[in-house]
Amino acid sequence: MQIITDAIQSFSFPPCAATIGCFDGVHRGHQYLLQQVTEVARQEGLCTALITFPVHPRQVMQSDYQPQLLSCLPQKTNLIQSLPGDYCIMLPFTHELSCLTAREFMQFLHQQYNVRTLVIGYDHRFGHNRSEGFEDYCRYGEELHIKVVQAQALTEENISISSSVIRALLKEGNITQANHYLGYSYYLDGTVVNGYKVGRKLGFPTANLLPSCPDKLIPAEGVYAVYTYIEGQRYKGMLNIGCRPTVHNGTNRSIEVNILDFSGDIYHKQMRIEFQHFIRKEQSFPNLDALIEQLKEDRNTVSELLTL
């Protein structure tokens, strides 16, 4: 899919079937929506367009809003590029755009992007204050010569797969189900930074990750089995997210991974962590010996769960 970042200024669009949304995570529900857009476009002889925003709209409207994203912009762009379709339009969200009514926004899509058919997500609303619904969009579509289609949700066991559902799963540590709904392993990218080096003293040296995207959601505190990627190589990893209560780390949360069967200086290098399994919640131990024994058990568990 071709990413268009300057569509307003310099790109002339052929007639298209389009859908619009934040597409945070580009999960299986989003992919199912795009399949429906592609099918409509095929039936009507149109190209396909996915319209999204480089910045979450609420961040524009509320300067203190913390979105807890599933995918920051570079990650979202990479995920979208791998999908079938013709165009992904990165539409800058502005205060002026937020003031448009639903009808005015649809007119903008028609005039600017040559949208002939608009496929709307099953729970998506747009326009000033998001006060109008699907029947209103259909009425405006008739006036503007835009066909309006409501997409079906992707559901499993009566649950509609959505970004909010996946966020909730990650916050409770349910990595297995979150990954299933995403269609890929949830991951954090970042830089290896200096830590307190407590793990090294315990016999479990760790690499501390500083996430490259400060707005990306950090899963629930606890111990995880992860794959760790450094310079293109994949390793098994035992990850801890939390405040390390046994060593009295206060409220300073860290993201640190003990990389199995690895040694080397990786400070300031880029690292990716892919979450695979939740092992246990973070807990306080009566002494360091008890902590070390638990870490040994955790490492054995991680080694058995992961394969290279």
Rank of each mutant, 00 (worst) to 15 (best):
A225M: 04
G242F: 04
M238A: 15
G173H: 01
N194D: 11
S212I: 09
V149S: 14
V247I: 15
A168I: 06
D189I: 06
G203S: 03
S162T: 15
E256I: 05
E157H: 15
E172V: 12
D265I: 06
L170V: 07
A225W: 01
L260H: 07
T251L: 12
T206F: 01
A153S: 14
V193S: 01
I266M: 03
N249P: 06
N258V: 01
D261M: 09
D215R: 13
D265W: 05
K171M: 13
R167H: 08
V257D: 00
L239W: 04
R253W: 00
R167I: 06
D261W: 06
I218M: 09
A151R: 09
K197A: 15
N249F: 02
V223M: 01
A168F: 01
I255C: 05
R234N: 05
V226Q: 05
G250I: 04
T191V: 12
H180N: 12
I175G: 01
G250L: 01
S163N: 11
Q233F: 03
E221P: 04
I161C: 08
L239S: 02
L217M: 13
G195S: 07
T191I: 14
G190I: 11
L209A: 05
N240D: 07
Y196T: 11
V148S: 11
N208D: 12
Q152I: 10
T246R: 05
R200A: 12
V148W: 09
S164A: 08
A178I: 10
R244T: 00
S164T: 14
G195Y: 06
A225V: 04
Q177G: 04
T176R: 14
S162C: 08
